[in-house]
Structure formats: C-alpha cells, structure tokens
Amino acid sequence: MGRKGLFIDYEYCTGCHTCEVACKQENNYPAGRWGIKVNEIILESFNKVEINYLPFPTELCNLCAARIKGGELPACVKHCQASCMKYGDLTDLVQAMEHKAKTVLFAPK
C-alpha cells in the first residue's frame, strides 16, 4: 500500500475553521489541541491585498485512520465547506496537482 496524503487547493480555502473543529470533534480533543491548523497569510502588494489560507496537518493527524477503515472520508475533507481538500494515494494526488495550480500536498504519516 502506497502512502496516503491530503491535497489542498488553497485557491479556494476560505479560512472557515471547519477542518479544525471537524478534527477536534472526531478525536474529541480538548480546546488547545489541534490536528489541523489553518494559517492566514495576508500580504499587501501594490494596490492589492492578497489573502490566503492554508490548513496545516499537525503531528496529531493520523489521516483519520478509523474513519478510513469504516469507508468514510477524513472528517476535515468531508466537511470542508469549500470542498478544497482531497484524501487519497499520493500518486493520484500528484496527478491532481498536475491539473491545478495553487495546490499543496501533505503526507503527514
């Protein structure tokens, strides 16, 4: 079995915190513990403000092993309101990157 990963299209990540809270609920983490954390990058360049968000899976991320076993998507991927996250084989996700700019791939484990 190849390595699995999280693909994130940050052109469409709106920074809504859904992935963070989905993860906390799934793992019953207390406040203060994060399996994924959204980073905000706001830059002023010329007359434009660039606003980007990028979720980062922390050391606690196990790609929702129990959910995957039960045939479900990781909690963050399922609930992402912008539908900008994918879970799958890294090789497939690299293919997805070929077709879409402004994307990142995480292989947390």
């Binding site: 399922k78 609930h79 309101q81």
Partner: peptide
C-alpha cells in the same frame, strides 16, 4: 456531521454545527 445526501450542503458542515 453533514448529510452527504442532502442537496443544500452536500455533506458539508460549519464549525458551529460540528
């Protein structure tokens, strides 16, 4: 959790629901 069969949110959910 969000209901993936529902046409309104198609499985998605917000932090407040979660």
């Amino acid at each position: 959790e969000g209901d993936e069969t529902h046409p309104f949110n198609q499985g998605r959910a917000c932090p407040r629901l979660l």
